[in-house]
Design a protein around this nucleic acid. Structure first.
Lengths: 158, 158
DNA sequence: TATTGTTATACTCTATAACTATA
DNA sequence: TATAGTTATAGAGTATAACAATA
């Protein structure tokens, strides 16, 4: 969508670049059978022992979305749910050997997709682009505006 | 979602900035009763006589999405469907006086939201940011990667 | 036969609600 | 009472299919 065309259209530029980059990333990771989320969970779960909730927060996902993602990782043999030794409600996500190996490859793919995009820019622009975006992310564009969320009916009895 | 954290994470930077900017834009336009799409259609329809299909292409929307958007504009008294004089299948989207006035205000709002974001950057970074994003949009990140589209069942008879 | 606009609806995605087990 | 994880499903958003009118 191209909202307008008057002033330098920052919305269009950011929407388009992020959308296209995301399709590239999705396609590249799909070649090794991963979604972006699976990659994200694998990488964070490898760093240290983490529960589903912790991984959900790191990846900015809902806990119910995390259930689906971990289901997919387990089904693919890339990770396992293990009981936490300290909290019997919680599950530690343990990455399998195969999962660790794939996470290594997927991180290379992610880096490569980013590099490919950045390599198309002059070195000085590349540097400033990252700095400026970083400034926005930690500054003026840090926090989303409130979106009015619709209330929801109770669930139907089954 | 924060896909990774190794190299400078262009995906995260672009996703986050575009997402937050979009929530700002949505909230700002909602104050005058418009969605981003309604604004987009109004502005393009004001430029010259255009059919729904033409407006859909300009805004990168599906024609069925355009139907809904034009319905909303008509309901709000901001635009009307008029028969094309040259093609009896087509409808020209005519902006009403009220619609034109609101489009003027909405364009100011859009510009202001962009300005607010850009004003938080040093002037030199601002300029390079726009140039670099523009380069990506017309260059390496011009075209989305193909997404495998799921086939769909035929419609149920009603 | 192809295209414009329309309606109906299938599908995806995501999050809410409700529940179980445990803290 | 509150939290981790799960299941079921509501709801938004969007696109496909089919169709009528016209080219």
């Amino acid at each position: 969508m191209a909202p307008a065309r008057t002033s330098p259209d920052l919305s269009f530029l950011l929407d388009h670049t992020s959308h296209v980059l995301r399709t590239r990333m999705t396609a590249a990771l799909a070649e090794i059978g991963l979604t972006t989320r699976m990659h994200c969970v694998l990488v964070h779960a490898l760093e240290e022992e983490r529960t589903q909730i912790q991984l959900a927060e790191l990846g900015d996902m809902d806990k119910t979305t995390m259930v689906v993602t971990v289901d997919a990782l387990e089904k693919a043999g890339l990770a396992e749910r293990r009981p936490s030794s300290t909290d019997r409600r919680a599950r530690i996500i343990a990455v399998t050997a195969e999962g660790a190996s794939l996470a290594h490859r997927s991180q290379q793919i992610v880096d490569q997709v980013h590099e490919d995009a950045l390599a198309s820019l002059p070195a000085d622009e590349r540097e400033v682009l990252l700095r400026a975006l970083g400034r926005l992310v930690t500054g003026h564009l840090e926090t989303p505006a409130e979106a009015p969320r619709a209330a929801r009916r109770a669930r139907q009895a089954s």
